[in-house]
Nucleic acid binder design. Structure first.
Lengths: 225, 225
DNA sequence: TTTAGAGTTGACCAGCGTGGTCGAATGTTG
DNA sequence: CAACATTCGACCACGCTGGTCAACTCTAAA
């Protein structure tokens, strides 16, 4: 049936994995992502991965030739996930800083609720750097970093900020404030499954903070007064 | 000479360590702090510690009966260090939030420059929780957490904030802003020895941010206008 | 000079967890 | 039936673990 790719000459061993039912792929991926996220490359254990994934040891090395290849696959997968489920959704035409950051926060939250492990794992491979990775993948990581950077810093209309202060500094103060709220919220929510949480009350709280930020850092609309 | 404590009945094995020359104690302590900070309790290696400290394997277990005891000693040491070199120096009578946070930031920076490893290690044992620790020490950790919390949240005069916004929210926004600057500065400075850095320009930059915060979040002094 | 004992070393130990292999068992397909 | 893909976990060699200990040096008192 779907065995075409496997039978062909030049089929990669990894194709065996990609032709698995999605639910099984997902189980293995999540187990592996969580393991690497928790321990980093060197100290991650393939034994713990297979146990958590509910498969025999042999299968992991039937799907992937080595721990290394598994890791590379996960990096590639995470990169694609973050790009398509998060970065691509951002409207770069939004020139208002608070609107932009709110969008970033909301989309990231949604993507994170969809697959928490990917984001935890990405923190690991961003920190571990090029070690254990072919240069091509390392370049892809750098690209994604750049893309994220642009989404955060580029095309913002700083003329809306209060005129009596350095707009670059105001920019950062707003960014830090929103980051701070996000971080603290995430800390408050540790232990719970993100996907199960009703975020409505938190968004309300968040908007109250934004209102204060606008009042404090934006030029008032009514000229003098 | 200083062998009195060792010869006495009831002398602890750890006294051998405490009677060493300070420089040697320091070498061992720093090596161990760095190792535990980098790897956590379980994955920290006593072999790497002795190598980094420049002593033979045997000596570590001559000074400390076990890895566990070494860990407990380091926790105790770090607690005392942070208390005496940081928390105790804070002037809790300062009721202005920005002044208080500035003080906190400055004192923490100074203490961190004095012994970076202690702070990195403290992040580890705060996260690892009570595991590997006698309840008495765990209680001490909790005390220090509380003390830190009070220094950050207690006795602040929120009446100075702009009247048109929820003072608790303004409080947090200011806190996040200052935290954000501190974190970003620390990130910018990774790799350099904190102790070697001339912080003067950074403090200047910091004060520029504070001026904006005051202008934006504090009630203006000149009544109406 | 002898000697007791503190200080110091690193080879060594049993044990465990590692990434990876493989023969055998079990589908699945023709 | 045969051919082949899939699945398993016992097994392997190995590296590193926390901890021990016989041997050695150093110091200082007798």
């Amino acid at each position: 049936m779907w065995s075409t790719r496997v039978k062909k000459e030049g089929s990669t061993i990894i194709a065996r994995f990609e032709n698995l039912e999605e639910s099984k792929q997902q189980a293995i991926r999540q187990a592996a992502l969580a393991e690497f996220a928790a321990h980093g490359y060197e100290k991650a254990s393939t034994n713990r991965i297979v146990k958590a994934a509910g498969i025999g040891k042999g299968m992991l090395f039937y799907y992937f030739t080595s721990k290394q290849e598994l890791y590379e696959y996960l990096v590639k997968y995470s990169l694609e996930f973050i790009q398509s489920r998060y970065l691509d959704k951002v409207d770069a035409a939004e020139r208002d800083l608070i609107e932009r950051l709110t969008q970033l926060a909301r989309l990231k939250m949604e993507a994170q609720a969809e697959n928490e492990e990917v984001f935890q794992f990405s923190a690991v491979f961003l920190q571990e750097g090029e070690a254990h990775l072919p240069q091509e993948l390392a370049a892809n990581i750098e690209e994604m970093k750049q893309a994220g950077y642009k989404l955060m810093y580029e095309g913002i209309d700083k003329s809306r900020f209060r005129k009596d202060s350095d707009p670059d500094k105001v920019f950062h103060l707003i960014r830090w404030s929103i980051d701070g709220y996000q971080q603290e919220l995430l800390a408050r929510l540790t232990g719970q499954k993100l996907a199960d949480i009703d975020f409505a009350p938190y968004w309300e709280e968040f908007y109250a903070y934004l209102a204060i930020l606008k009042k404090s850092f934006y030029e008032t609309e009514e000229g003098s007064r």
